[in-house]
Simulated assay, not measured.
Amino acid sequence: MTDIAIVDYGMGNLRSVSKALEHVAPGASITVTEDPEVVRRAGRVVVPGQGAMPDCLRELEMRGLREAVMNAAMSKPFLGICIGLQMLFDSSEEGNVEGLGIVPGTVRRFFPTARPAASETGVTNGQRLKVPHMGWNEVHQSANHPLWKGIPGNARFYFVHSYYVENANPSQAAAFSHYPSPFTCAVAKDNIFAVQFHPEKSHNAGLALLRNFVQWEPA
């Protein structure tokens, strides 16, 4: 059995994710694969990604990976990164496409003009937002979870995205960040943990999260 399968659907930082996992789990069998059967047999599954949601879903279908990814998300430790988070939701404003429908909610685009925000953000109505949101942001944990073990509650992680998830079930939000208003940047549901940021690019905090994932045994 493959310990960890990293799903290759033609998008994402596959090498960076693989190298980061090899660093935190040197004894694990880690495979980058586009073979649905390998994904099915794996003990743990990681779905990274960068790019557009319509392209992501199309490639999953074309490579026969959609069913294997959905089965993994419902049956084994599953980590989604960036688009790997967004694809889990019901729908996305990016291309007005349907997602996998595993986590209830919608993927929204950042407003090109900021809404009025709290005074501590230093943002006033009419201030322009840079889209995509790119760079280091504090991640505020909003729920206890094994993947946060040893990670400070306001640790900084690296983001690159133009869209964010809007949860229909707020109890599944595991963390939030600000740009400039709060947005969900991590969700937890049963055996699923998925993040908008890139742990493979987030130095010590990111490596800690990946190490926790390798050791995680969902109830």
Rank of each mutant, 00 (worst) to 15 (best):
I102Q: 01
M74L: 15
T33D: 05
P36I: 07
D190V: 00
I102R: 02
G105Y: 11
G150S: 09
H198K: 06
H23W: 08
A52C: 10
G206F: 02
H161N: 12
D55P: 00
C82H: 01
V97R: 01
A186P: 07
F110H: 13
G135T: 10
I6F: 02
R156T: 10
F157L: 14
T2D: 12
D3T: 02
V187W: 08
V139G: 05
G99N: 06
A42C: 10
A118G: 05
N204L: 11
G51C: 12
G150N: 11
E61M: 11
T124C: 12
R115T: 11
N169G: 03
V38G: 09
F89H: 04
L207W: 03
L210W: 03
A194R: 05
L210F: 01
P199L: 01
N71V: 05
Y9H: 09
E138Q: 15
E34H: 13
V17F: 02
I6A: 04
Y163D: 02
N71Y: 05
L60M: 12
Y9P: 01
A219C: 07
I6M: 04
Y163N: 07
F159A: 06
K189M: 14
S162L: 02
V139P: 06
M87D: 00
G27H: 13
A186V: 04
A175L: 11
A20L: 00
G135K: 07
F110G: 11
L14I: 05
F89Q: 05
F110Q: 11
V46M: 00
V47Y: 01
E166K: 12
R115M: 14
L79R: 02
H203A: 14
F111H: 15
G64L: 03
L209N: 03
G49D: 14
Y179P: 10
N169K: 15
A143C: 13
G150Q: 10
H140T: 07
L210M: 10
E67V: 06
Q215H: 15
V160G: 03
P199S: 00
V123P: 03
V165Y: 05
P116L: 06
E37I: 09
S18D: 09
V160L: 14
R40N: 13
S119K: 09
C82R: 00
S181R: 15
P152T: 09
Q172H: 12
R66I: 01
L65V: 14
V97G: 03
E59Y: 10
P170N: 06
E93P: 07
H23D: 06
P48E: 01
S18R: 13
A186G: 09
A73H: 05
M53H: 04
P104Q: 05
G80T: 08
S171G: 12
V38R: 12
M87W: 06
S16M: 02
F176D: 13
S142A: 14
V139S: 01
E120M: 02
S91G: 03
F110Y: 15
V107C: 10
N13L: 03
